[in-house]
Amino acid sequence: MPSEWGLVGIYALTVLARTMVITLIPVVAYAMLGTAQRVSELYFVASLFGIAASVALPWLLSRLGRSMLLIGAAASGVGSAVALSTASGFGLAIGLVLHVLMVLTFENVMSLYVLQYVPRRTLSAFEPRRIFLAGASYAIGPWLGVSLAQSTGPWLPLATSAACALLTPLLLMRLKPQGPTPSAHAASIAPSWADLGRFWAQPRLRLAWLLAVARAAWWCMYLVYAPIFAISYGLGPSAGGVLVSLGSTLLLLAPLWGRLARRLGTRNVLMSGYALCGLCTIAVAPLTTISAYGAAAMLLVAALAMSAIDGMGNVLFLRAVRPHQRMRMTPIFSTYRDVAQIVPAGLFAVLLLVLPLPVVFIASGVMTVVASGFTLYLSRRF
């Protein structure tokens, strides 16, 4: 199997490890904690651990190497499944933290494999393929995880997630790079504070990071609060799983959005996607007082718009980063995931102290509309 397609398949496997429990965790947390505000606090605390791990990851990468980090991510996935299976408050907290660490490590290390295995000239074609197969995992995982938990018990989706995590390092080690393997010295280089300054001094990297934060923040909101919305407004946990799966299924349109971007321009697709997604997300709030099904449908329309943005993947960063800075800049860029988790979770925890659940959709929509304005800074030739 060619390295690029093998890498795409393994990435989809890491996504399945995540998505088998991605809806199950907020459903269990909401049932155990009782309010969306307390769930927000839980995710906020877990995100703090994610930030700490993200800061330490470059140092760990330079000391341990990618293979050991992959094994660590797999161990985190197994540990998360075990902790969540205890059905206790402590187990829920530990399981969520370990889940965050698994996702963070897999994403960062996989980004380095992409930079090694995929030639720069083929990145624009590779990203839609990666998102397409990831979309299949997103489409199956959330619904299947909740369905299996209701029919057989939580142990089966948890065991499936753990198995996917264990398979990832085993399969990655069998891949053969198409290009030269980085030297030991190059692989041991970790970013420094000076690299952070160099990253932020480059407008294209800064813009790619900000737009990635907005994209990931919307999905963090959707994956946590769509199930809570379904339960709160009488649709039920299964409907929450279906809602997440249907929204995620739209990622399968990634190749279509990739072709559209080549025809109309990435800038135009991103601008329209952020704007439409933000406006539809805001519209969910008033619809909750009229029809829960109407609000759910509007969430799916917003997810459709966001799928256009996801169809571009991280191509903004991959095309902006200079080849000799890839190893140093990738961990810095990857902090967008941590920021996207911690900032909305903290904001929602505060807002939900005094306002009902629909405020989450208003705040998320406004942030996404603002991101549409940032796309104006992209080159018109992009």
Rank of each mutant, 00 (worst) to 15 (best):
E4P: 00
G9A: 11
I10G: 05
A12F: 10
L16G: 05
T19M: 14
I22Q: 14
L24S: 02
V28K: 08
Y30A: 00
A31I: 00
A36I: 01
S40E: 02
L42M: 10
L48C: 13
F49G: 02
I51A: 11
A52C: 12
A56S: 13
L64H: 13
S67F: 08
M68N: 10
M68W: 15
S80E: 03
A93E: 02
I94W: 11
V97A: 06
L101K: 01
V114I: 15
V114W: 14
P119L: 12
R121C: 03
F126S: 03
A134Y: 07
A134Q: 14
A136L: 15
A136D: 03
Y138S: 06
A139Q: 08
G141S: 08
P154N: 12
T160W: 14
S161C: 11
S161N: 10
L166I: 15
L167K: 03
P177M: 08
P182E: 02
A184F: 06
W193T: 08
R204V: 02
R206H: 06
L207Q: 06
L211D: 02
L211A: 08
V213Y: 12
W218S: 08
P227Q: 05
G234I: 03
L246Q: 00
S248L: 10
L251N: 06
P255W: 13
R263P: 00
L264A: 11
N268F: 11
L270G: 07
G273F: 07
T281R: 04
L299S: 09
L299M: 15
L300S: 12
V301P: 05
D310T: 13
M312L: 15
N314K: 13
R319T: 12
V321I: 11
P323A: 10
M327D: 13
T330Y: 07
S334N: 15
Y336G: 08
V343A: 15
A345K: 04
A349K: 07
L351V: 13
P358W: 09
V360E: 04
F361C: 07
I362V: 15
S364P: 09
L378R: 00
S379G: 01
F382H: 00
